[in-house]
Nucleic acid binder design. Sequence first.
DNA 1: TCACCAATGTAATAACATCACATTACCCTA
DNA 2: TAGGGTAATGTGATGTTATTACATTGGTGA
Lengths: 132, 132
Amino acid sequence: MVHAQELTKNQSLVLDVLSHTEGPLSAYSLLDQLRDKGFRAPLQVYRALDKLMEFGLVHRLESINSFVACTHGHDHKHGVIAFGICDTCGRVDEFCDAVVEERLKGWSKEHAFRLSKTTIEMRGTCASCLAA
Amino acid sequence: MVHAQELTKNQSLVLDVLSHTEGPLSAYSLLDQLRDKGFRAPLQVYRALDKLMEFGLVHRLESINSFVACTHGHDHKHGVIAFGICDTCGRVDEFCDAVVEERLKGWSKEHAFRLSKTTIEMRGTCASCLAA
DNA sequence: TCACCAATGTAATAACATCACATTACCCTA
DNA sequence: TAGGGTAATGTGATGTTATTACATTGGTGA
Ligand SMILES: [Zn+2]
Ligand SMILES: [Zn+2]
Ligand SMILES: [Zn+2]
Ligand SMILES: [Zn+2]
């Protein structure tokens, strides 16, 4: 696992914005927020995001082409992660379920499928938004 | 459920290409393959895909921005669907797992999250490609 | 000093998706 | 059978997301 001190300048800047934002951001939103820090091109953001995802500090939400800071501790070892994404307010909840993981790995084993990455995303409306 | 006879011309054309293709296609690949059928613009493809997905005849693969024809029978009632996607050959396997579905719905209930759509995609390498 | 490698900067382009508006086809019914 | 309503279609422009290509910088170790 990588610690904050080991991050490069651009990686730190991107992680900082994500960490201080409630909800996911697109790469281009990140770029806009980092223009006054000297960011000029999408690739600067994408490169930082790639590394941060490799380190497990950031996750990509495939169904909305956006990114969130990991809500687990930095030393948390990720298994299969699932996300609950509120389409109304953008709130994202990250969680792990050992049973789900076991079932999906079971399918992979049965089918001799070498699993490299699993995406689980639930879209819907969160409790707060339902109440409102 | 909708039967093939009820599909419009554009919907039939799109489904036809998808059904006769091994593996997923992007919207623009579909467009290219349908140019000689009179297709001229992306929206023609996206509109047809939207309806076909509504009918449950086509699924979107979020992690690769592509679409596949459903491999279940037309009258199959979809629960939560999971996909195994081979990054080497493009093969896609669609399956349902009642336990996974129950666990994810359980999380939603616990968190008072109104679930509208669930995405489960496993990326990796299929048995054939591993053997080769 | 030099070779090497990781990180960065920049412009251009590719890939994916939607908006806005006009037109056509079809069904229902007055 | 004319008129109104709705679904489907055609078309161009635009918006959004992601990658390619190439140049430059900065440190690390022989
Ligand atoms: Zn995490
Ligand atoms: Zn919400
Ligand atoms: Zn299906
Ligand atoms: Zn394969």
